[in-house]
């Protein structure tokens, strides 16, 4: 499982960076989405994957027995997904407004504030 995950995470990062380097602002936002998902998967993978062992405490015991899956990374990912969703919603509205104002889907025409 881990090698597949590692591959998927790597591919997502690569795709995200590739998309962000394009001139189109739509592709830029797609890149941002991929990037946040790559980070989420990375947390999931790096915390270790334990299959078929839910972190449940048996009746009467004070701690789970044996090796169980770590629930914390999933809580982190859940939080990160919610945050990424909110921020990306903003980013989508922003590029729409920027497109309306600049009348182009091209980062090269948005250099007024540089230099």
């Amino acid at each position: 499982m881990e090698p597949i995950m590692a591959l998927a995470v790597g591919l997502l990062y690569a795709a995200a960076i590739y998309m962000m380097l394009r001139r189109s602002i739509v592709k830029l936002v797609i890149g941002l989405m991929l990037l946040s998902n790559a980070a989420n998967l990375l947390i999931f993978a790096s915390a270790g994957m334990t299959r078929g062992a839910p972190p449940l405490i048996p009746e009467g015991a004070m701690a789970p027995e044996g090796l169980v899956a770590d629930p914390l990374p999933q809580a982190l990912i859940l939080t990160a997904i919610v945050i990424a969703f909110g921020v990306l919603a903003f980013a989508v509205v922003l590029i729409h407004r920027a497109y309306e104002v600049v009348k182009a889907d091209d980062l090269d025409q948005m250099k007024e504030t540089d230099t």
């Binding site: 962000m20 602002i25 941002l32 980070a39 600049v102 250099k111």
Partner: peptide
């Protein structure tokens, strides 16, 4: 402001993603 915000948002989200990783 739109132009500035696109750069600001992109790089700060990139930073957040690196931080999260």
């Amino acid at each position: 402001q739109m132009e500035g915000a696109i750069k600001y948002v992109t790089l700060n989200l990139l930073s957040s993603a690196i931080f999260l990783s």
